[in-house]
């Protein structure tokens, strides 16, 4: 694909995720949503680079902050919003809500760390079935506090499982700064189990895709588990009620200058095309909101 076209393609996916997440906060304010949501504004490039690069038949397990991953995988904001609104047409007919999604080979659960052994078991099953498929599990820096993560890494390495651990270090576990909760080096933890790992410290989504591709090739060829550690930042609160009093405006500004979304946005040469994509996406979202609001509530 031509570089500019590729940019627009990735940008449209990232734009959908950011707009969807923003729209949710707005819908909460209007009292149209029940429960909570964990926004991923600032982390879109992780979801998009990973999901766009891994094979189409990859099996995903994600966590509480899963909307970006889901949208990158499915491109179905309607199914997600319907789930959040408790509508019959939601991916889990209102039973799962924001943190518990299941759509084709994409699963999420809201308990930190617990998804990692399940994803490891899925990878073991795929290996035993000789399906050639890869599993990808998304975790956050906060999840590194959970013991099952390391038990699972140990087994994934012992049994040479085709699993990619994707760590999104968004610097905060709720309000706790990563350096107050995670000792030592993150990738060294994976390396200690003999799991090859890559640090991804860049705001260039293409560079991210390239590293994901390397990890993906390595996992498929060996097969062996791999570990990607993304440095990223969440610009919104942990959840809808978090006003982020634990960080300074100056810190947020520093990260805003490194925002992969904005950097990609400004790098697009054809402003007209970009604005068209944005408008189409916003129109689509408005249509989705209207359509989902009109849907019947999920059956009891």
């Amino acid at each position: 694909m031509h570089q500019e076209e590729a940019k627009l393609n990735l940008y449209s996916k990232m734009f959908l995720i950011r707009s969807f997440e923003k729209r949710l906060f707005d819908l909460f304010k209007k009292g149209k949503l029940f429960g909570t949501t964990h926004g991923c504004i600032g982390q879109e490039a992780v979801a998009v680079s990973v999901v766009s690069t891994l094979p189409k038949d990859t099996i995903y397990f994600s966590n509480h902050r899963c909307h970006g991953h889901f949208l990158a995988y499915s491109d179905r904001p309607d199914l997600l919003l319907a789930e959040l609104m408790g509508k019959k047409g939601g991916v889990c007919a209102g039973r799962g809500g924001s943190q518990h999604l299941c759509y084709k080979d994409f699963f999420t659960n809201g308990v930190q760390g617990g998804i990692v052994p399940v994803a490891t078991g899925i990878a073991l099953a795929e290996k035993l079935k000789k399906s050639g498929r890869t599993v990808c599990v998304f975790i956050g820096d906060g999840t590194l506090g959970q013991g099952v993560v390391y038990e699972s890494m140990n087994m994934a390495s012992l049994w040479s499982l085709p699993i990619l651990f994707v760590l999104e270090n968004n610097q905060y576990a709720m309000s706790t700064f990563v350096r107050n909760a995670v000792a030592g080096s993150i990738t060294a933890r994976a390396e200690a189990f003999g799991i090859r790992s890559w640090d991804i410290v860049t705001s260039d989504v293409f560079a991210m895709c390239q590293t994901v591709q390397k990890a993906c090739d390595y996992i498929a060829e060996e097969p062996r588990p791999g570990f990607l550690a993304f440095e990223t930042y969440r610009f919104c609160g942990h959840s809808k009620s978090d006003e982020c009093h634990y960080r300074t405006a100056a810190e947020v500004q520093t990260w805003a200058e490194k925002d992969a979304f904005e950097i990609l946005q400004t790098s697009i040469k054809d402003k007209g095309k970009r604005e068209l994509i944005e408008q189409q996406c916003l129109n689509r979202l408005e249509e989705v909101v209207r359509e989902v609001e009109a849907m019947p509530f999920a059956d009891v």
Partner: peptide
């Protein structure tokens, strides 16, 4: 968890 992942597949 590993067993439940296997069972899911």
């Amino acid at each position: 968890g590993v067993a439940s992942g296997m069972a899911m597949r």
